[in-house]
Structures are given as C-alpha cells and as structure tokens.
C-alpha cells in the first residue's frame, strides 16, 4: 500500500525528515566513534536535516533496502573490472584507446535514478557521463567504442530500475556524435 502511494506522488515531508535525520545521526555516530558527544551531534543533525529539506525537497523515489546488497555486489565487481581495464590500457605500450562520445537515450525516469546512473557509469569500465540533454539523451564518453557501451549502460539502468522499483520506458536508437 505505502509503496504504491510512494510510487504515485512525492514522499511525505515527515517521513523524509526522519529518514534523513536517521542517516545524519548514524553518520555522527560513525564519525565521533564510541565516545559520542551527543550534546553537539544531536542538535547539529536536527538542523542539518531541516536545511537538507529546504535545499532538496522530498523526491519521488525510494530505494528498496533489500535490493542494496545485490546492487552493491554488481557495483563492486564492475569497479574492479573498471580499475583493471584502465590499468591495462595505461600500462600497454601501444596505449589501446578508441575514444568516442556516444548519445544514449535513457530508459530511466528523471530524478534520483538518472543521477545515480550518471554517477555509477562514470565508475564503471570505460564509460564517463559527459552531459545530459533535456530530451533524456545522455552523452557518454567511452574509452573504447569497440566495446558494447550501450549494452553496459542499459545493464546498469536495469540494475537501478530494480533498486528503485521504477519502470523503464522504451527508447530509440543509439547515435554517435
């Protein structure tokens, strides 16, 4: 029930406030260690959560916590491949690069899922977010255009769609610019 309501409209201000407050308190606990100085941390977290609501109103998307481990596994493995890939190219004498900027139509809805996509693919093998257009086209710089860049971006979108429980819309053809 609640999930359907969340999917339809914005999350409520109260639940967003307490969610962010909880995250900030956890961050304070982590930063201050075992001898937590709550007389300072608690008011700070309360003010910071209020300011965050003012700067960034509640979004329309909610992460599915049970999906986080799966996404984290995907991300860690891809990070490993990305670091290895770039190290291999850096250390090869011939510098095997065939960079190109591709224009990929996005299937994810605007907002948080798109932002996470742009951040994630910049850390995945051979891809870098360059610019997002109004018409939901993402310019991606790739290190090697011989690889299936569109396919790996689409795979990341699928992972994020599962993480956020959102629908992906059908998209057009990939173009290079």
């Amino acid at each position: 029930m609640t999930e359907q309501r969340h999917a339809a409209g914005r999350l409520s201000w109260v639940s967003t406030y307490f969610l962010r407050l909880g995250i900030l308190l956890a961050a304070w606990w982590i930063l201050s260690g075992s001898n937590s100085d709550w007389w300072f941390g608690l008011p700070l977290a309360i003010v910071a959560a209020s300011v965050s609501l003012w700067l960034t109103p509640p979004g329309r998307f909610l992460l599915r916590p049970q999906r986080i481990p799966h996404f984290a596994g995907f991300f860690l493995w891809q990070s490993l491949l990305a670091g290895w890939d770039v190290a291999r190219r850096t250390l090869s004498p011939g510098l095997p690069l065939q960079p190109e900027i591709l224009r990929l139509p996005l299937a994810l809805p605007p907002g948080a899922p798109t932002w996470w996509l742009m951040l994630t693919i910049s850390l995945l093998p051979g891809t870098l977010s360059v610019r997002l257009h109004q018409d939901r086209i993402l310019e991606v710089h790739c290190l090697d255009s011989r690889l299936d860049v569109a396919g790996s971006v689409r795979e990341t979108e699928t992972q994020l769609a599962r993480l956020f429980r959102v629908e992906m819309r059908p998209t057009g053809q990939v173009r290079s610019s």
Binding site: S79, L80, A82, G83, W84, D85, V86, A87, T90, L97, P99, I101, S122, L123, P125, G126, L128, V130, H141, L143
Partner: peptide, 14 residues
C-alpha cells in the same frame, strides 16, 4: 576525457 577515466576508475579501485 580519457584522463578523467584514468583518475576516477584507478583511484576508486586503489
């Protein structure tokens, strides 16, 4: 562009 690739991905893994 290619330098950003090198820096972000290698340092992320490092």
């Amino acid at each position: 562009y290619t330098r950003i690739h090198a820096l972000t991905k290698a340092d992320n893994l490092g």
